[in-house]
């Protein structure tokens, strides 16, 4: 299984995911991003924060090719797997 790195973008700041995660393919990458973003948005709301929709995951493969940009706003608007 390929390894995918979920870098987190907060405006100009990018927090790198050095560890990555083994996933079977792009569908699983998107599902993981969706579930994780839902979890973070829900957690933020419960913490009294506004919805964190300005953030995104930039997911790259081992060759550092950009595989997917997943804006957190998608997790706020679309249904997906339960985190």
């Amino acid at each position: 299984m390929p390894r995918y790195f979920f870098h987190y973008r907060d405006g100009d700041r990018l927090s790198e995911d050095y560890e990555g995660e083994l996933l079977p393919g792009i569908a699983a990458v998107e599902e993981t991003a969706m579930a994780s973003a839902k979890e973070i948005i829900a957690d933020g709301l419960l913490g009294g924060n506004p919805v964190l929709t300005g953030y995104s995951y930039e997911i790259r493969d081992e060759a550092r090719n950009l595989v997917l940009v997943f804006p957190f706003s998608e997790a706020a608007e679309k249904p997906g797997p339960r985190p």
């Binding site: 987190y8 907060d10 927090s15 995911d17 560890e19 993981t32 991003a33 994780s36 979890e39 995951y57």
Partner: peptide, 16 residues
Amino acid sequence: GVRRPGVTVALHMLEG
């Protein structure tokens, strides 16, 4: 008890 990518986010916030 969270998805792994969420740890990067939480660390990012504490670092911020």
